[in-house]
């Protein structure tokens, strides 16, 4: 082995070590895979609000075309509160319960509200 080779080896080891360190660091802060970034609420094609995830336990009021929906957030989980006083006429969104990951969405037709995750998409679509 020549003298300069040592420097090259040191550089290679440095690159490998730092890449592994980045990898483990990212793994620690919650999944190095595509991560869920936020939850987006759209009303009539416009982004009404976007909330970064994970979120602390909180509620958000959403005014739609029909009435007001109360959104519950807890970590990555989201639901429309089934006890929302200003109910939506077909109640599908209210009875849906918690969603926890993409591509799950909450869709409220009468209110024209769409709630979906940004980031973290593992599949292209959901057939049902």
């Amino acid at each position: 082995m020549k003298r300069g080779d040592l420097l090259i080896y040191l550089f290679i080891i440095f690159m490998l070590l730092s890449s592994f360190l980045i990898y483990f660091f990212l793994n620690r802060i919650g999944g190095a895979n595509q991560r869920i970034k936020s939850v987006v609420v759209e009303y009539k094609r416009q982004v009404f609000t976007e909330i970064p995830l994970p979120s602390e336990k909180r509620t958000v009021e959403l005014k739609g075309s029909w009435g007001v929906l109360i959104l519950n957030l807890d970590g990555y989980k989201i639901r429309v509160n089934p006890a929302s006083p200003h109910y939506c006429p077909d109640k599908i969104c209210m009875n849906q319960g918690w969603i926890s990951e993409p591509p799950q969405t909450i869709v409220c037709l009468p209110n024209r509200i769409i709630i979906y995750y940004r980031g973290g998409a593992q599949i292209d679509g959901l057939t049902h």
Binding site: G97, W98, I99, S100, P103, Q104, Q122, I123, D124, G125, L126, T127, H128
Partner: peptide
């Protein structure tokens, strides 16, 4: 393309 199929009796695929 990855298309999920809804589980007929619970949340998720």
């Amino acid at each position: 393309w990855r298309i999920g199929i809804q589980h007929p009796r619970k949340d998720g695929i």
